[in-house]
Nucleic acid binder design. Sequence first.
DNA 1: TTCGAACTCTAGACCGCGTCTAATTATCGA
DNA 2: TCGATAATTAGACGCGGTCTAGAGTTCGAA
Lengths: 213, 213
Amino acid sequence: MSLRERKKLATWRAIRTAALRLFEERGYEAVSVEQIAAAADVSRATFFNYFASKEAVVFDQDPEEQDAWRALMDQRPADEPLWESLSAIMTGFTERLADRMPLQRRLKAQSPALAQSTQDFGARFRDDLHTWALARAGADDEMTALLQLNLVQAATSTAYQAWRTEEGFDVFLQRLDQCLRSVGEGVGHPKAAAHPDTGVYTMEEGRSATISR
Amino acid sequence: MSLRERKKLATWRAIRTAALRLFEERGYEAVSVEQIAAAADVSRATFFNYFASKEAVVFDQDPEEQDAWRALMDQRPADEPLWESLSAIMTGFTERLADRMPLQRRLKAQSPALAQSTQDFGARFRDDLHTWALARAGADDEMTALLQLNLVQAATSTAYQAWRTEEGFDVFLQRLDQCLRSVGEGVGHPKAAAHPDTGVYTMEEGRSATISR
DNA sequence: TTCGAACTCTAGACCGCGTCTAATTATCGA
DNA sequence: TCGATAATTAGACGCGGTCTAGAGTTCGAA
């Protein structure tokens, strides 16, 4: 790693940590890019060299994170069904977010501007997952791959939305697992079977499969 | 309908039509709010009285549309499974967008700023659907309702993403139907059955259910 | 070690979105 | 007809995001 690269990474992290600190102290909207830049000892222009927008500093991933999720994708066996691969990768990815998700959640709860942004965590991860899934599926299955990408995304954001502030991160992960399974099995079956192994699925008369909270 | 209300609706429509015309002529980014306001014969401030943002003028629904989708929701039988209701409502809603979706699509294709916005069509519709589904499901099923909301959303945007420029609107609707069925039946079953009625589902060895394009 | 190429940082100007205020005008109900 | 209420407006402001020109830094090859 050259000096240039090391400096670059250091600057990236300096900007981000300064920004997150200020955001937490004063709130997202109350902090301007200028203040972030000043706190990180760089110019405003440099901030925009590193982050495409003010939001990006909240949602972008540390460059080294990218290697981690790439590894996650590579280690899925080639003959595994796509849905299982996607579920496993997404689970693995979110597990590594244990530290940062609570902060993001706090900021989002506090700032309408951030809350509205659908930039949940890692647009870059989504992009990577997208290209990975399309490459894996082959041209014929393009729409299937697309659908499953959107579904794994939907499952994740469902678990995220249902995640209460007072609940621990493990509760989130558990819900994510529930959602992924539920989607995999189909949500339109009135006669969904209970799962003896987990016991999280219940059945109601004339309703779709439900998930106990 | 009072004079005030009639005038208000007229102004709303004047702003919107002026905006869409300009956008189509010159492109989204090349048109400023000031120019829209001038073309609609109102002040810039009035524009922001009617639309929360420049994007909103592309995505907001005509106030009378709201009545239409409310009717869609009300006419679903109370004992229908939630997933079927959601599918039917979403299908009915999108069918009424036949005119406007192609334009939105063109604008999005042309403007990165719009494309990135996840404000697909009708944040307001989504909100209404949200409250409707939660009221319908009752407190116990909150997470199930949430999940199904996100899934119907995912199915719709999948069909949208797979929709090529040269294809007609009916192709989009057909794909939407495929996606909704596929989600309802579960996407994680390697042994998905072919559907004799539509013939759109195929089966592949060791893969999830696939949908032919 | 030197030197030019390539990269990075920076100040500063600029544009447009979105907010706010205070004042003017139009509609309403009685 | 008149007071209350709502809609419209000009104008100023802050901030995010872009761009340019130039200064400073790192790199690799001679």
